[in-house]
Design a protein around this nucleic acid. Structure first.
Lengths: 211, 211
DNA sequence: CCCTTACTGTCAACAGTGTTGGCAAATGAG
DNA sequence: CTCATTTGCCAACACTGTTGACAGTAAGGG
């Protein structure tokens, strides 16, 4: 391999590797098996060998196609969750609507990738960062759209996240009673109310630091 | 069903076997090193070999004294969190006081065992169960004491847990902005208010399908 | 046709993990 | 002293993520 012939096309950090179309079925099978294993067993307990066995390929192929276990994980959690438009919702109902959108997916079980990343986040910084990105790209714009004139909307969105993530964690991940078995409508009512509180209640002045 | 053992030795929490007092320093060193490693690295990334190296003992000694990595973990998270008596607090201030007690420990960094168990809980069912026990033995009695006549206090305590755990998760574990860098007093005010809401706001009737 | 080249797959190996059992030294009781 | 128990060290096992060498395989050009 001569040096002049090598094209240094943007491979610096690009996750884009070049593979022929012949391996597409194998790659897809790997991704599918990884999604299931990660969601069910969590990041650490899901082994590459098990994923490869589920997909019917050699473990080395997983490495070849996805680089590492961490990259395979990030590939599985690449999801575009479409949050409904909240700009037309009455301001005193946004909290309830947001709670319904967030909890509803978990209640219906349409949350495989999110469950995987939430289970991995506390011990895997990359997963935690993925949650930060999801918050900034999904939740924050939706709430900014609903309250375009509120200067504190970012802080309020963060507070809403604490209530939402905590509910999801207790009910669907840790399964802590009585939250796990609580009537969904009752839970939705309470969580929606506190989210609404975070959205509209006056915030304590924190300008003491900005002299 | 109370057992007769009243004296809980700091070190003598070995599974079944009895060990001589000569190994007490080693056992204590192991427990201390494990506490630090589990809190900092999480359950899976904290290796027994590293814990043994920190404690200056052979990895096999960890197994001999604590049986397994999981048992060592449960030994480290045996914590008696002192929750203040809430029975004398005015009813409209319990939420704020509880938020201060829960978040204050994390803000001051007095939370090593809790951080370890919270990081491990999403992927380790035993850790999740440990959180259930903590909720039942610490949080629930304290709130029952503060609201002895409320028949829904268990449900309300669960709702409070969702707000509390979510806040801790976002701010101290996942470090999601803007919650992580938010002014503590402002955060405490908002979280305390929603906890108060969970405590005193009317609950939606869930008896429709209950009977 | 063969030859070249890149892609696809298989296998073995490496360093690291939790865990186990064997064996030597130390300690204390008789 | 002898002897049994405790304490510690070491090597090994099965497993993990990861790497590299090697063998088929499809495509394209002479």
């Amino acid at each position: 391999m001569s040096s002049e012939n090598v094209e240094v096309d943007e491979v610096a950090w690009a996750p884009r590797r070049r593979f022929g179309p012949r391996s597409a079925p194998a790659r897809r099978a790997i991704l599918e098996a990884a999604r299931a294993r990660f969601a069910e067993d969590g990041y650490e307990r899901a082994t590459i060998r098990a994923i490869a066995a589920d997909a019917g390929v050699d473990p080395a192929m997983v490495m070849r196609y996805y680089g590492s276990k961490a990259e395979l994980f990030t590939a599985t959690v690449r999801v575009a969750s479409d949050l409904e438009d909240l700009s037309t919702v009455p301001r005193d109902e946004v909290g309830r609507r947001f709670a319904g959108a967030m909890l509803g997916r978990w209640e219906r079980g349409e949350n495989k990738p999110e469950e995987a990343v939430l289970r991995a986040a506390p011990t895997h910084p990359e997963a935690a960062r993925s949650m930060q990105v999801t918050f900034e790209e999904q939740i924050l714009p939706a709430l900014r759209n609903a309250f375009p004139d509120d200067p504190d909307i970012d802080t309020r969105a963060g507070l809403i996240l604490t209530q939402g993530l905590g509910t999801v964690l207790c009910r669907y991940v840790l399964k802590i009673e009585p939250v796990a078995s609580m009537d969904f409508e009752q839970l939705l009512d309470a969580v929606g109310a506190t989210m609404q509180h975070h959205l509209t209640a006056p915030l304590k002045d924190a300008a003491a630091q900005g002299r």
